[in-house]
């Protein structure tokens, strides 16, 4: 079947041509990195590494999250509302193609976002890591972005085209601030410190923070993310079924 690759390429190109999307997903983490790099001394020690390195991982995580939530959530909700998802069901594409393509598109887009933030760290922040560490960091952040991708798709199924923007904005805010992506978790108020343990954003970034500190990524963090991915994946499948059984959206 040549349908899936054709559709995937169409989706990726359509997303990349969207200037606003690319601007937000790449621009925000890069700009925030440059802006907040000097909030601390770049060479200050934190969690077994330097602030400039630690914060690069934070912003790469933030970028991966924003990219996924917008690629999945915002666009999916709009396309359900416009009737495009229904139109796709009357093509030879199998019914699961839309979701899998949205998740795959998210994953494909996330990789360059992570790379651009890393490049900013290298060129502007002066981050120095061994080639192996760069590679492992990129791979770990990329692979675990799967949980954000499924979160994005779920948001797109749950929200309507009107509620999706506030929902995505709120999620971005909550997950990044309370997950310690802007202020390191130990510096957060006590109550919030406990909240972080429940957020995928915190565990996601923790994997990367461990890598840059020369530690092995925590099995606990990976476990929580996996659990998130499974639960979100099931929820997505369920929402998709509900949507499918409805004849008229």
């Amino acid at each position: 079947m040549t349908g899936l690759p054709t559709f995937l390429r169409f989706e990726v190109l359509r997303l990349l041509r969207n200037v606003r999307y690319v601007g937000i997903t790449v621009g925000f983490p890069v700009v925030f990195y440059v802006l907040f790099l000097h909030n601390e001394h770049p060479e200050a020690r934190i969690a077994g590494t330097t602030w400039k390195t630690y914060f690069m991982v934070s912003m790469a995580s933030f970028g991966a999250m924003v990219a996924s939530l917008n690629a999945g959530g915002t666009r999916l909700a709009a396309e359900r509302a416009s009737g495009w998802t229904r139109q796709l069901r009357v093509t030879p594409l199998p019914s699961w193609s839309y979701i899998t393509t949205k998740i795959a598109t998210s994953m494909i887009i996330v990789l360059p976002v992570i790379a651009v933030v890393e490049l900013t760290g290298l060129l502007i922040g002066g981050v120095r890591l061994s080639p192996l560490t760069w590679a492992v960091l990129t791979l770990v952040l990329w692979a675990s972005a799967f949980s954000f991708a499924s979160l994005g798709v779920l948001v797109g199924y749950v929200a309507s085209s009107e509620t999706v923007y506030p929902l995505v904005t709120a999620l971005m805010f909550l997950l990044s601030f309370f997950g310690g992506l802007f202020t390191p978790v130990p510096d957060l108020p006590v109550v919030l410190r406990h909240a972080a343990a429940f957020l995928p954003s915190y565990h996601y970034a923790s994997l990367g923070w461990a890598v840059v500190a020369g530690r092995a990524p925590g099995a606990g963090d990976a476990g929580v993310l996996l659990a998130y991915a499974v639960v979100l994946g099931l929820a997505v499948t369920w929402r998709h079924r509900v949507d499918e059984s409805r004849a008229f959206a």
């Binding site: 040549t2 349908g3 054709t6 559709f7 169409f10 359509r14 997303l15 041509r17 969207n18 709009a78 396309e79 509302a81 416009s82 009737g83 495009w84 229904r86 139109q87 009357v90 093509t91 030879p92 594409l93 008229f248 959206a249």
Partner: peptide, 29 residues
């Protein structure tokens, strides 16, 4: 092939030229 009854929306995805949308769709067949 089918043209469905649409509610409020256009039934089309945004951010693509008519020609590109049609050539993608054609390639599914």
């Amino acid at each position: 092939g089918a043209m469905l009854q649409v509610g409020g929306g256009s039934g089309l995805p945004h951010g693509v030229k008519v020609r590109d949308l049609l050539s993608m769709t054609a390639r599914l067949y």
